[in-house]
């Protein structure tokens, strides 16, 4: 799954701000952390603000502050502000959609979309912050069947 740049920036910003909802961060501070354009990030923050996830704090020392519920807002909530994470809105308009091959392909792609949505909608920002702050686990050994297949390959 590939996220659009604006979506990725929104997730970064939401996570940065959600890590400490009392803290205010300037757009420039967030942009600098990820090496991204302040202007682009400002547009993203406005969208998050319209959705009620962040608020702009005016005046000296102003910036942005998280105002959503970190235990309720999911990755999917943020992503869907910027792009569709689900199946094509008009699958019948895809080239060859009416053909048996097109219909079969649609069933497989729908399966992938279902799993992606279930995953993204089950991970709240609070859970994502835990994942961010945990060291990556040691690489799990693959099932023996996979290992055998790899050896044959």
């Amino acid at each position: 799954m590939k996220l659009q740049i604006a979506t990725r920036l929104a997730l970064y910003a939401a996570l940065q701000l959600a890590a400490d909802p009392e803290r205010q961060l300037a757009a420039a501070e967030i942009a600098e952390r990820y090496g991204i354009s302040v202007n682009h990030l400002a547009k993203v923050l406005r969208t998050l603000g319209r959705a009620g996830l962040v608020e702009a704090v005016r005046g000296a020392g102003g910036g942005y502050r998280f105002r959503g519920n970190v235990k309720r807002v999911t990755l999917l909530d943020v992503i869907e502000l910027f792009e569709d994470a689900g199946p094509s809105a008009r699958p019948e308009e895809e080239p060859g959609a009416a053909s048996p091959e097109g219909q079969g392909l649609r069933r497989v792609l729908n399966e992938i979309d279902d799993i992606a949505r279930a995953t993204l909608s089950s991970i709240t920002l609070a859970t994502m912050l835990k994942i961010v702050n945990e060291p990556p686990p040691a690489e799990a050994a693959p099932p023996k069947s996979a290992a055998r297949a790899a050896k044959r390959g």
């Binding site: 235990k71 999911t74 279930a118 909608s121 089950s122 991970i123 709240t124 609070a126 859970t127 835990k130």
Partner: peptide, 9 residues
């Protein structure tokens, strides 16, 4: 969704 989020957390 509730159970998935719980176990994810």
């Amino acid at each position: 969704h509730l159970l998935l989020s719980f176990f994810r957390s």
